[in-house]
Nucleic acid binder design. Structure first.
Lengths: 298, 298
DNA sequence: GAGTTTCTTTGACCCAAGTCAAGCAATAAC
DNA sequence: GTTATTGCTTGACTTGGGTCAAAGAAACTC
């Protein structure tokens, strides 16, 4: 476990360096024309679809209602945003950026770009490339680390949202389409029968996976899905590992799964995760390949 | 130049993600028991040698004198630090952390470690390793990018400090020692005769290099040195490139240099930078290898 | 030894950032 | 139709983080 504390030290030391040297840049350029809070708010409004309810901004930025109200009013007075009333619920107010506001955001972005590109000028092209790669890797792994995978009831809205998106994805990818009736029922993946896992990123569901018991000692992995925004992080691998851990907890010794011939990356992923292809164990309509993995005893 | 703007975007997007998700952690744990400014100051004091002059803290943290004075007094009242008078100059006050202060800093560090290690628990060991490597690379390149290399007069304190450290390093590495009388005189590296470059990191001189004209069209690179804290960043390569650019500006077509047999890494660096070994062009007492590089015309 | 500079302290301010509670209007629940 | 509840606004207030200028004491310069 020595290595963990080394990794912790590496990340903390990077954090100190980065926030002090680079992160500070942001505050400097953002804060020059208006209060930082106001600038951040303007960015958030400009980055949202037009007509965001104040309520959404409040939860997203974690602001006090009174504080937000005042800041929005200040931005309105400066001509940066326009306020309106929500069409469905006239208690709610909506806000959208004006052209002037958009111009200011663009200007700030230009300044930030200039600052960063000034920094990068000190590097040779190959070094710039390495830096980009390194930060991309760091970001990918930090995102993956910050994801949480938790069991939820398959009837909850988050679970339904994942399954719907999963079904839509498959429908687009399978030449023959996909019938949502093929999805497992909530009762098959709850209690003793199985489990349904949802992966969350900053509160948003971005992936799922199900495990259901098929016969004594044998489980089946179903519906491993990852949102397009969260792909290439290694989330599928993590969901799979979490499902296997659940299987071990339930005393299962084997997990199986099937997959459609169109999903070649999925097949490669299962093989990397220790699954071996086996003969058909079912006549599942969308299956073209069947896999199995023996689990260690819990 | 398309790639530069891609790199800018990559770094900015990383910055946004990192400061929001990870950097925010810091403020949360640091700011819980005392004002953030005070916490930062306490950390800075605890991290310095005991008896730091307030003056040093002021420049290091960029604080107003009055503001600092008050914060230090508050920390003293809480028993976190002890104030004293500077032994050599009784205008200056010094400050050192008490046991209670040290304990608080240790506790905060424990919390931060726990936070980060909780984050890393979501990653497999090989992924943790990759993350550490990626942040180490990113940090190295960001440091390099943030360095500035500027011509300074060789008589200035910064230049003298570099040359003294250079001489001390060589004295330790050469079996026969090193005589500081061998250093170039300030007049040899100023004006038309040559140039003296100093590399700064956050205002601190951390490297140097000199160029002097030896015969028409020919320059000699001397005293390329990098502070121990700034090694392995690629600074020597950058200093060399800057000296070559100066040589080109002066219309020189060839630069030469000699190096001591003990400095094997330096030799490898010169070769990577495009220098080829040539027969002795001088009878310089510390020289064992001679190199030359032809320059493009300015 | 006088005048200047350096370092710190102190008092007086300022603004950003945020909290809290009262109140109003619209909607939802019963 | 009454009674919550929700969403927003407003006023009053607090704290943090800082700036500025005056002034005292010590040290340096001439």
């Amino acid at each position: 476990m020595e290595s963990v504390s080394e990794d912790v030290a590496a990340l903390r030391s990077f954090n100190r360096y980065f926030t002090r040297r680079i992160g500070a840049l942001d505050e400097r350029y953002l804060g020059q024309d208006r209060p930082l809070g106001e600038a951040r708010l303007l960015f958030e409004i400009a980055g949202s679809r037009s007509g965001v309810p104040l309520r959404d901004l409040r939860t997203r930025l974690g602001l006090d209602a009174g504080y937000l109200s005042r800041m929005v009013k200040a931005l309105e007075a400066q001509g940066m945003v326009r306020l309106g009333t929500h069409p469905d619920d006239s208690r709610m107010r909506t806000v959208e950026v004006t052209d002037a506001g958009r111009a200011e955001v663009a200007e700030q972005n230009r300044r930030a770009d200039a600052l960063v590109s000034g920094l990068l000028r000190g590097l040779a092209p190959d070094q710039r490339r390495s830096l980009s790669d390194a930060v991309a890797t760091a970001r990918r792994l930090l995102r993956l680390a910050a994801l949480t995978v938790v069991p939820v009831d398959a009837r909850t809205p988050d679970a339904r949202a994942c399954l719907d998106a999963y079904a839509a994805d498959l429908d687009a990818r399978f030449p023959e389409g996909f019938d949502p009736a093929d999805l497992v029922g909530p009762e098959e993946v709850s209690g003793d029968a199985g489990v349904f896992l949802v992966a969350y990123e900053e509160g948003r569901p971005v992936g799922c996976g199900a495990l259901r018991r098929t016969e004594p000692g044998v489980g089946e992995v179903k519906h491993v899905w990852v949102h397009a925004d969260a792909r290439r992080l290694g989330l599928a691998r993590r969901l799979l590992a979490a499902l296997e851990a659940e299987a071990v907890d339930r005393g299962l010794t084997v997990v199986r799964l099937d997959t459609h011939p169109a999903l070649t990356e999925a097949r490669a992923m299962y093989e990397r995760a220790g699954y071996t292809e086996i003969p058909a164990y079912s006549d599942h309509v969308y299956a073209g390949h069947w896999f199995e993995k023996r689990l260690p005893r819990g």
